[in-house]
Design a binder for these strands. Structure first.
Lengths: 210, 210
DNA sequence: TAGATTGTTAATCGATTAACAATC
DNA sequence: TAGATTGTTAATCGATTAACAATC
C-alpha cells in the first residue's frame, strides 16, 4: 500500500485529538462530527478531516465519527498500547518531577531505571524505582535493553551521557537539558522549557493573544 | 513606524538564536555570518536573515553580524532584561521542579510567590520562597501585583485557579497542567509534556529522524 | 429518498528558500 | 577596488482552508 510519510506537524496534533476524544468519552458522547469537534478544539473542520485522513477513513459519511473507535485508532497510530522501556539519567529536581509526575504507561512507555551520580540521591525512591549509581547503567542496559533515554542531567553533561547511551544501543531520547542534540539515526524529542518561558515574555510585551 | 506583527513561528525561534549566540560569545567568537550560523544551527542562512530582519537590520553587508550586538538585540526583542513578577499555584512534584530548576531572572521574570493547598507542603522552601497557603493568594496578589501565573496544579483544578487569578488581574499564564486553556484577552503559554512523550512514541515506531 | 457529513480535490495562504541588487 | 555578505524581493514549497462529489 505504501502510505505517504505523514508530516510531524500533523503527528503533533494527534495527542490533542486524543485528549478531546477522551473527554467526550467521559461525558458519554458516542458520536461527533468534524464540525462539532472543530468548535470545541478551535480549529477548522477541514483540518480535522485532513489530519485524520492521513491515517485512514475513520468516519462515516452522513454520520460523523464514532468517538470510541476514533480514540482507539489514535492509540494505535501513536502506538500507545505497545509499551517500551525507558531509563532516566539525572534524578535532580527536574528528573524526579518527570519520573514522579508523568504517567509513562498511558504514553506507551515504562520507566524501568533511574540513574544519578550524586550519592545524596542514589538509593532514594523516584518514580517507584530506587535511584541507581550511573556506573551501573551499562550493565543494566545490557540486561534490560531499554529503548529510550530520558536526559535530565545538567546541560554540560548531556553530550557525554547521550553518547554513552547511544553506544549502549539506545536510539531515542526525551531530552530535558535544553541543549539541541543532533546525531545520525538517533531520535531526539527536545523539551525546551526555558524557551517557552522566553516566548511568554515576548508575548506579554507584544500581546499576541493567540 | 508601525512594524508588522511578527509571526509566533519566528518568535519561537529567537530563544534558539539566543542560545547559539551565547555559546559563540563563550567561545570568544565576535563575528558571524548567516552562512556560518546556519551550518551550526542546521537551518538555512536565508531563514536566519529573514528572521532577524523582521526585527531590524542588525548585520553589516560584506561583514556579517557582531555576535554580542546581535545577542543583546535579541535580549531586547524578547524583553529578557525587563523582569516581571510571577506567582506559582501548585507546589507538587512538577511545580517544585520548575521553581527550583528554572532560572527565571534570565528569562525576564522573577518568581515572587509559591502557593499550595496541601498542609504538608505549605511552609516548605521551594525556589527560595516559603510555600504559602493558597487562601493567601488574593491578598498577596493585591499587594505585589504579579503579572504572570504559573499553573502547576492538578488538571482538574486549572480552570478554577486560572479564573481566580484572572479575577485578581493576572493576564498571562505558563500552564503545565496539560489542559488547553483559552480565555479572551489572556495569554496562555501551554507546556504539553505528555504530548511530547506521545509524539516520541510515534517517532520511534515510524522512525522520523528529523 | 432527503439530509448530513465524510473523504478528497482544488484554491488559498503563509512560511521557507533562492536569487540578487545594495553596500560595507 | 574587489570580495563578501547583508537586506529584500521573487519563487517555491508545504500547510491550511474551502468546496464539492461520494455515500451513508
Amino acid at each position: 500500500m505504501g502510505k505517504d510519510k505523514v508530516s510531524l506537524t500533523v503527528v503533533r496534533r494527534l495527542p490533542r485529538y486524543y485528549h478531546y476524544l477522551n473527554e467526550l468519552l467521559e461525558q458519554g458522547v458516542n458520536k461527533i462530527s468534524s464540525k462539532e469537534l472543530s468548535e470545541r478544539m478551535g480549529i477548522t473542520a477541514s483540518q480535522i478531516r485532513q489530519d485524520l485522513n492521513c491515517f485512514g477513513g475513520f468516519g462515516q459519511q452522513g454520520y460523523g465519527y464514532n468517538v470510541k473507535i476514533l480514540r482507539d485508532e489514535i492509540i494505535q497510530i501513536l502506538s500507545l498500547d505497545k509499551k517500551q522501556d525507558a531509563v532516566m539519567a539525572g534524578a535532580g529536581n527536574l528528573g524526579r518531577a518527570v519520573a514522579n509526575h508523568i504517567d509513562f504507561e498511558s504514553k506507551g512507555f515504562r520507566l524501568v531505571g533511574v540513574f544519578d551520580t550524586n550519592p545524596q540521591i542514589i538509593g532514594r525512591e523516584v518514580g517507584g524505582l530506587v535511584v541507581q549509581d550511573i556506573t551501573e547503567l551499562p550493565d543494566f542496559t545490557k540486561k534490560s535493553k531499554p529503548v529510550v533515554g530520558i536526559l535530565s542531567v545538567p546541560g554540560n553533561e548531556v553530550v557525554d551521557v547521550a553518547e554513552e547511551m547511544v553506544s549502549l544501543g539506545i536510539r531515542a531520547f526525551w531530552n530535558f537539558t535544553g541543549k539541541d542534540m543532533v546525531m545520525p539515526n538517533v531520535i531526539f524529542e527536545n523539551v525546551h522549557l526555558g524557551d517557552s518561558l522566553m516566548t511568554l515574555r515576548y508575548r506579554i510585551e507584544n500581546d499576541t493573544d493567540e
